[in-house]
Design a protein around this nucleic acid. Structure first.
Length: 854
DNA sequence: TAGGGATTGTTTTTT
DNA sequence: ACAATCCCTA
């Protein structure tokens, strides 16, 4: 260590045997018993009283000179609280950053400040985010402030950073450093095998559910030995812990990790090898954590291990940024408690509140604040803004059913579009993924470009995963899961029975599948046909492995996909999605170019590779409230605010008040995404799982403070269809007038199969029953009058949007639509095509969305 | 071994 | 309604 400041992990120096004397060991032994005790009261070493000693900067003269040149200009544009958060670099700091208060700005500026002052080298900074996207943005923004000085910074997701560390020390936890990272699919397949061997009825204890249980344990930092037996209860006939242990065992033999392991093994590594922990503690002089409210316990423990300094006089330089009001991931193990107990963990911690909102109008802010105030157990913040204009009130609209709701939103979007309002400033945020569908269809018929954010991720698609599986087997012959996945895909006569015998042999000889298979084909154990097929594919793999030494990973992939018959399989397929799959395979090759070699690509594909965001041009965004966190839009539509859907019934059933409060935070997140316009809506009738359900307006609507909200009767929509009752209906709804449709039905919980239809009952909350109707005949009548039929509306508007261009299509021509599949054009009107789809029925769509068939 | 008919469940999502 | 998965038969 020449300078003492090099990152030992970036030089290829051997890692073990450094530091970690006896004194240190005692110190750690105390620690070792503690990290897994989440509830203990053990406190962190306190911050020293008085000003923290300036940390001796390693940056040398250049940094000193920069520091002497006066405060950097970026400080000038910060408000007081922000500046405080940026400058408080010594000691533990918790930044409570409300929505739209410039959180990212503070984080990035703080990083820049640390680098600028020469307090630490980039590699001495650990900065953790939750998503790759956040990490990328952060890096870009910091680079924008201080330039290339960010190189080498440990900036990434918990998992990416955990992986980086784990690869360095894999042997210490029984892995090899080239371990594979499994995704959910692989996990389930593996678990199924274990369940089968254990003779556990998969019907009664589905692998999906058990993997969830195991995951939850991992989230808590619990290895099989640490799980409290009573915690497992009756799950899997009381054998859940044993299964967990076996699962871990199998992972180890496969030289694989699931996502949870990436951190869990880090915890094991750090507690069992204090000298290793010591190195990282020495290394990381500053730790920054984004979205702290979303950390789970294992992440918390990881941070806690790393943040603790060996010198009790020196405080941990850890800065966590978060917002308890935006904690919406409790269901996947996030522990709001982490943020609530920060001051206890780090006595003397400074807590800085960012409350000045730069995003939304006073009305939007007021509505959101009023709503979130109904939650208990908050750290408490009061967002404020000094915008002079209150802006438009938050509009709440009650509508007849989901179709109408989608139509109204569609119309508004269209109106905004005509006014020249940029489409990418518009978002429709829904509670659950399936809700995007009706809006999608609406946008298609209107010809409004849209994008669904957060659909299936690119690398999760079947064809991409298959292709990757081939590569994984090439890179790692021991990768059984990958081998199994593609050994008979395309079908090549290596079926279940063959694989069963291979499995058996593999288990007996404790060999990886592909090795066992190689041995078997050299004997007479298999039937000749199976033996021939299996030999062929094994030879293929041998050949490809050879090839991988000679050519780059792109060429290799091309060859493999071609020679394996995989591409041919999709080319011959008649499935409507086949063309898209081939497209994705090409896309994969393009994506691979970003990586240097196969190993690097494989590393990133499971951790980092994002969904293809090749959406071009301005588009309306459709997404769930969860995926909207962190984003902002000029106009936000929030449909589906109905009891049972939002708040979601299951959230309440499974988590009671805590579940409800998380739903409320979700609503808060939704509203605070909007800068100037926020429109909430709910429908009286909604079709869920095929059957119509009457629904009550969400309780959250009641909770919105009246002075920031306007409840709107959307006349016109029903004019002439409901015998004049429509307008009254809405007046009554919130004004307490007389009823429509007789009321009396309600209870809008969405039940299962058997609750189909409407059931009599009294709304739970004793509210006015106004808006719940009985569906039935009246509803049918409405539908048949054309409320549900789209054609008249569409054609009327086609002229506005489509102009006079005649689409280049002829009637009777065959065509293909990304969403609806193949079909036949039956009518051409301007750029609108009416198409009879083979599967999806007859629809009118914009020609631009339609392609020629292959 | 493969493909078709029955069965089943259907919140949110990152890594 | 719908899709994914499972089981069974050809």
């Amino acid at each position: 260590m020449a300078t003492g400041w090099e990152d030992p992990f970036d030089s290829r120096a051997p890692l073990m045997g450094q530091s970690g004397g006896i004194g240190a060991r005692n110190h750690y032994s105390r620690l070792m018993s503690d990290p897994f005790e989440y509830d203990d009261d053990d406190a962190w070493p306190g911050a020293p009283s008085g000003p923290a000693p300036a940390y001796p900067g390693p940056g040398g003269n250049a940094a000193a000179a920069r520091a002497a040149a006066g405060p950097p200009k970026w400080l000038e544009t910060l408000n007081e609280a922000q500046r405080e958060a940026v400058l408080a670099v010594d000691g533990p700091v918790l930044v409570l950053a409300g929505a739209g208060t410039g959180k990212t700005r503070v984080l990035t500026t703080r990083l820049a400040q640390i680098l600028h002052e020469g307090r630490a080298r980039p590699y001495q900074i650990l900065c953790v985010t939750f998503t790759n996207k956040a990490a990328r943005e952060m890096r870009e923004r910091v680079a924008g402030l201080v330039g290339p000085a960010t190189e080498g910074m440990w900036l990434g997701t918990f998992h990416a950073l955990g992986t980086r560390i784990l690869r360095r020390h894999a042997e210490l936890v029984g892995l090899k450093s080239n371990f594979t990272i499994l995704d959910t699919d692989d996990q389930i397949r593996l678990l199924k095998q274990i369940l089968e061997a254990e003779r556990i009825d998969e019907k009664r204890w589905p692998a999906r559910m058990l993997i969830h249980v195991i995951q939850r344990w991992k989230d808590k930092g619990l290895t099989p030995g640490k799980v409290d037996a009573s915690d497992a209860g009756e799950v899997a006939n009381g054998r859940a812990v044993a299964i967990y242990a076996q699962y871990q065992e199998r992972l180890r033999t496969l030289n694989a990790c699931d996502f949870g392991d990436l951190l869990l093994h880090n915890l094991t590594l750090f507690t069992e090898h204090p000298d290793v922990l010591q190195q990282y503690r020495n290394l990381f002089q500053y730790i920054l954590v984004d979205e702290y409210q979303d950390t789970n316990i294992s992440q918390y423990l990881w941070l806690r291990l790393l943040a603790k300094t060996d010198d009790p006089k020196r405080p941990a330089n850890i800065c966590c940024v978060g917002d308890d009001d935006q904690s919406i991931y409790g269901w996947r193990g996030a522990e709001v408690g982490n943020i609530l107990r920060f001051e206890k963990d780090f006595p003397g911690a400074r807590v800085i509140r960012l409350e000045r909102n730069y995003r939304s109008t006073p009305n939007i802010l007021g509505a959101a604040s009023g709503l979130i105030a109904k939650n208990e157990g908050r750290l408490g913040k009061t967002l404020w803004t000094d915008l002079p204009e209150d802006g438009q009130k938050v509009r709440v609209r009650g509508l007849w059913d989901g179709d109408e709701e989608a139509r109204v939103v569609g119309e508004e979007v269209e109106a905004l579009q005509l006014k020249g309002y940029p489409l990418d400033e518009i978002a429709v945020l829904v509670r659950a993924g399936f809700q995007t569908r009706e809006f999608e269809e609406r946008m298609i018929t209107l010809g409004v470009p849209y994008r669904v954010v957060g659909g299936p991720r690119f690398y999760e698609r079947e064809e991409v995963r298959d292709a990757i599986a081939y590569l994984r087997v090439i890179a790692q012959p021991a990768d059984d899961l990958a081998f199994e996945r593609i050994v008979n895909k395309p079908t090549r006569g290596v079926g279940k029975t063959t694989m069963q015998s291979v499995h058996q042999a593999a288990r007996l000889e404790r060999l990886p599948l592909s090795i066992a298979a190689r041995r078997m084909v050299e004997t007479d154990e298999l039937k000749p046909a199976a033996r021939r097929s299996l030999t062929a594919i094994l030879d293929d793999f041998d050949r490809w492995r050879q090839l991988s030494q000679g050519v780059d990973h792109i060429e290799l992939t091309e060859t493999v996909l071609d020679e394996s018959g995989y591409t041919a399989m999709w080319k011959e397929s008649k499935k409507p999605e086949a063309a898209g799959k081939l497209e994705n395979l090409k896309e994969l090759l393009v994506a691979m170019e970003e990586y240097e070699d196969l190993a690097q690509f494989l590393e990133h594909v499971s951790l980092v590779m994002d969904a293809d965001d090749r959406g071009k041009g301005p588009m309306v965004s459709l997404m769930t409230l969860h995926s909207a966190k962190g984003l902002e839009f000029g106009t936000v539509f929030l449909p589906g605010w109905e009891e049972g859907l939002f708040p979601h019934q299951r959230a309440m059933d499974e988590n009671g008040l805590a579940g409800l409060e998380e739903e409320r935070r979700l609503a808060y997140v939704g509203i605070t995404r909007a800068r100037e316009r926020c429109e909430i809506s709910f429908a009286a009738n909604r079709r869920i799982h095929g059957s119509w359900q009457a629904a009550l307006p969400s309780r959250f609507i009641d909770e919105l403070p009246g002075k920031h909200v306007e409840i709107e009767a959307d006349r016109g929509v029903y004019a002439g269809s409901g015998g004049g009752a429509a307008e009254d209906r809405y007046g009554f709804m919130y004004g307490g007038g007389s009823g429509f449709g007789g009321g009396g039905y309600g209870g809008g919980a969405y039940g299962g199969r058997n609750s189909g239809g409407l059931r009599p009952g009294v709304p739970e909350r004793g509210r006015d029953q106004g808006f719940s109707q009985g569906g039935g005949p009246g509803f049918q009548r409405l539908k048949s009058r054309g409320l549900g039929s789209r054609a008249p509306v569409i054609e009327g508007q086609a002229e506005y949007i489509g102009g006079d261009k005649q689409a280049d299509w002829g009637e009777g021509e065959r065509c293909f639509h990304q969403k609806f599949g193949p079909g036949t054009v039956i009518k051409v009107a301007g750029d609108r095509l009416t198409i009879e789809f083979d599967k999806a029925g007859t629809k009118t769509v914009v020609a631009a969305f339609v392609e020629r068939p292959e």
